[in-house]
Design a protein around this nucleic acid. Sequence first.
DNA 1: CAGCCGTCAAGAGCAGTGCTCTCGAATCGG
DNA 2: CCGATTCGAGAGCACTGCTCTTGACGGCTG
Lengths: 232, 232
Amino acid sequence: MNASRTARERVRAELIREITGIARRHLATDGAPGLSLRAVAREMGMVSSAIYRYFPSRDDLLTVLIVDAYNAIGEAVERADATRPRDDFTGRWLAACRAVREWALAHPHEYALLYGSPVPGYRAPEDTIGPASRGTIVYGRILADAQRAGRLSPPPMCPPPPAILSQDAEAVRSVMPGVSDDVVARALVAWTGLFGMVSFELFGQFNSVIEHRAELFDHNMTCLAHLLGFSS
Amino acid sequence: MNASRTARERVRAELIREITGIARRHLATDGAPGLSLRAVAREMGMVSSAIYRYFPSRDDLLTVLIVDAYNAIGEAVERADATRPRDDFTGRWLAACRAVREWALAHPHEYALLYGSPVPGYRAPEDTIGPASRGTIVYGRILADAQRAGRLSPPPMCPPPPAILSQDAEAVRSVMPGVSDDVVARALVAWTGLFGMVSFELFGQFNSVIEHRAELFDHNMTCLAHLLGFSS
DNA sequence: CAGCCGTCAAGAGCAGTGCTCTCGAATCGG
DNA sequence: CCGATTCGAGAGCACTGCTCTTGACGGCTG
């Protein structure tokens, strides 16, 4: 069904690809608030109203950019994970963390679109939740693999999580089967810690405070790896 | 110099107060992108151009809202810290964390303005860095107090931070004097972990995954407190 | 007291935005 | 070949930030 149907449909698909390409470039340079349908249309030599034949609203255009960005960062994490031996859990964790940071530094506006302030009035449609979880699935797999290999022995430090959290832990376990509630909680600490770190660096909270950000990032992610308890 | 000077200056100050008040309300309900000078002017019965007598640009109005928000969250953290005995370091840390979360939940748009995606083209002026560090100073004081009391014994878990980070640690020590490089690094893990957690909850990353957010937050912050090594 | 200068609200206007509607032309399917 | 569908273009609506000019008011000074 990828085969060309009518000529009209082919040019339509081509135009949609061109629009999203230009939009992605505008997003990368000007940020989400500066993404303008009229500007995209202008660059294509179209009149602004013609764009609405292909994207019913600006939010629909934003949605495909969001899906693209989730897929891009998810794929970056997947590829980073695949570069390490499957039983090098600390290495896989670190590689995945670095992939997030490096992708974020290379695509700051896209990162802000995914993990920054939500756009008021924008409701993320269903299409986004699949790609959004690609990265998370990788993290879950690293944890689950380590657990299955018997190489997950978190240091006794955190108190046992309260029983109420068991339901939420059960939901999280769908991406990291077999781990205890305690490990789920630690995984959430590490997960939020990773993105908190990247967001702080990207959103300027480290300005004129932290200079050696790559080194601090590596060290802190290593710290979180120890909290997770990879024995390697 | 707070005394009324000319009548003109008094009404001017009053008008500025009224504008910022209306703007703060608009920000709270519609979010930063929806803050419109024209709407504020309309609500005041002014014509839009008259607003520019008091705020040269929309960014200047945003700046005072940012400063206000930093002061508000900073004061919330300060007051929370003050409710606990000075030597209950874990309690002070937890109270401060909860203050951040509760303020953020009560003022989501303001929080997004401070810790969310930076507005493209907006350059934070010098006036903001003072209020911005109010909360950080409280965290530093908790750490420094614990250190001075000899009640800071972080569990041996993280590797020693690389030497390159010493310079950055020195800068951070201006708000938490006397602590080691290792503690500085752990403090940054905890600091970014706190805001990562709050941002994830507020920006929707926990949607349809985590339900018991207050409990998870408390548990994770307790976990981070153990990482910091308060012996209490 | 008179004059003058600074401050102010108001209006018009510019360039831009998202989005809707209509109209004529091109294209596709039967 | 002809009707139905799709498409690009244009005008238009209601917004936005921001600028410039105009006329009136206020307070300070000669």
